[in-house]
Nucleic acid binder design. Structure first.
Lengths: 229, 229
DNA sequence: AGCGAATTAAGTCAAGCGCATGACTTAGTT
DNA sequence: AACTAAGTCATGCGCTTGACTTAATTCGCT
């Protein structure tokens, strides 16, 4: 609806200050605890209709925030996928799934808000779906997932989907937690986003490599089945 | 002050119908999207101040919901810890960390709301901390964590804490996702909560068992994209 | 130079919110 | 039977919110 690229600079500038203000307020106070008025005000707009004027609806605003970041994340992932080309190591492709998000935050600097925003939106029933579509339709991500499957051909389809979900949840919420620590001056476990991403990749790789236990003992685990490590 | 457990039967019944109504509404529409008025109304109270009368504040209500479930989860976990006694298998103790939550939901039947409620509260900056204290001060959980550490003595402290966080995030959000699927009639990956718990335990055990990569290869995708506009 | 659409400002409005208050209902005590 | 107090109800107040209206301003285009 609103002029995408071809309108005045003023409108574009306003839209971006609204995006920035919304992202920050959402991350710090919770998506549902921030009104459109507050966002417009924080963006320096005198009008209480600024958000609805520029983004139509609240979910339009949220989708716009996601889109603004998704492009850059996608470009990072594309580069990583190219570098991983030909590899048969699970870890390389897991890294392609998980690390671009973290490295994007490294680019953003401190403080950032996008990870906390994402974590909230993903667990809010009213917005999760809209954003999931926006964010998961990534060609490079699909590619990385396929390659991970190729590295682990014995995994049943059911388990694959399950562990894909786990990967997504872990990525989003762990990164959000670290962002929160950074933004609030709490000590962080790893020295940099790059190292944090490595830790995440380690763990997720282990997650994918875990043996699938047979459902033999259907009682409460007295002596749980297959060995772990 | 007042709020004793056994004033009159009527009050206790009212409190519990408020708890039930709040839990359901919170899970379905988001914690911040439901007003105290709506909760009281849904609980069959003609008064709009019922919530504040019985629970003081909104965070009092939320803590009460958590407490109501935590006790039962704790008792399940205690039983599992007893059964795992003496084991040196990582998987047994990971199961003690992760499965009681899932098995509690099995007890609740379908539909349930507590998992979705928990996931939301945990990612809402205004309530996360209050609930984390309530929920993580569990002796049996602490015990399970210690035993996992004993099974993996070579893991650096830093990595332990990191993977403990991961375990928590994975448990809460995966269980919430399955609850959501069950409640909305979507197909679920595993046939029962018990099997779902096994899958979760498999993955988390793999996560803990993953090797820790040395930070040797520092081949970051250099020069990621430049910052903002 | 100035017309016209896009953008911003200013203000109104009904609805909904939490909170405070006082009256009513009910159960238990004496 | 009178008294007390917990619980419930009905109502009003001050405030915020999103939607809406109207006027002023900006800026691209001719």
């Amino acid at each position: 609806m609103s002029g995408r690229g071809t309108r005045s600079d003023r409108a574009v500038a306003t839209q971006q200050s609204i995006l920035a203000a919304a992202e920050q307020l959402f991350a710090e106070h919770g998506v549902a605890n921030v009104s459109n008025r507050q966002i417009g005000l924080a963006a320096g707009q005198g009008n209480n209709t600024a958000v609805s004027y520029h983004f139509g609806s609240r979910s339009g605003l949220i989708r716009a925030i996601v889109r603004a970041h998704t492009e850059q994340i996608e470009s990072i992932r594309l580069r990583m996928v190219e570098q991983a080309e030909g590899s048969t190591a699970t870890r390389d492709w897991v890294a392609c799934m998980v690390e671009p998000f973290a490295l994007h935050l490294a680019d953003l600097g401190v403080p950032s808000w996008f990870a906390r925003f994402s974590a909230q939106v993903m667990s809010d029933p009213s917005h999760r779906e809209a954003v999931a579509r926006e964010s998961l339709n990534s060609p490079s991500l699909t590619r990385a997932v396929e390659e991970v499957h190729r590295c682990l051909p014995d995994l049943p389809e059911e388990i694959r989907l399950e562990r894909q979900d786990m990967t997504r949840q872990l990525m989003i919420h762990m990164i959000a937690e670290r962002e929160d620590a950074l933004a609030n001056g709490r000590p962080t476990s790893r020295g940099s986003w790059h190292r944090a991403a490595a830790g995440l990749t380690d763990a997720v790789t282990g997650l994918w490599s875990a043996p699938v236990s047979t459902g033999a003992s259907d009682m409460v685990p007295e002596g749980a089945v297959t060995g772990g490590p």
